[in-house]
Amino acid sequence: MAKSNKPVVWFPFAAGGTVIAFFIPVIALLTLLVAFGKVPAGLSYESMHSWLADCVLAKLAVFGILALSLWSSAHRLRCTCFDFGLRIDTLVAAVLYSAAIVASLAAAMFLFRL
């Protein structure tokens, strides 16, 4: 049996999983801080927005985080569908990966229009 080409989809999934593990706690913490009205000045929406608008590297970093997280979520959902017995893997994969790519492109357009 030939070696699988799964690394093509698995590597960005694994990278996205790592990114999610690092950034979701930060997002959860920021959300809590916002809820309690205790956002440090540097992390307020306005300052983050203007920082993103000015800095190309920050845009690239945010795009990387979003695109990898989306890909990772799409792949995880594909595996979950399979585990739950949905035996139309090719269709599920096509729909979910396409959604991740479209959402990543939309994020890129939004970021670079800022």
């Binding site: 070696k3 699988s4 799964k6 595996c79 399979f82």
Partner: peptide
Amino acid sequence: RQEVVATKEGVWECTFV
């Protein structure tokens, strides 16, 4: 071993449950 491990029947069938 990679001839078995790296195939679809090998590690790539695992979804890390």
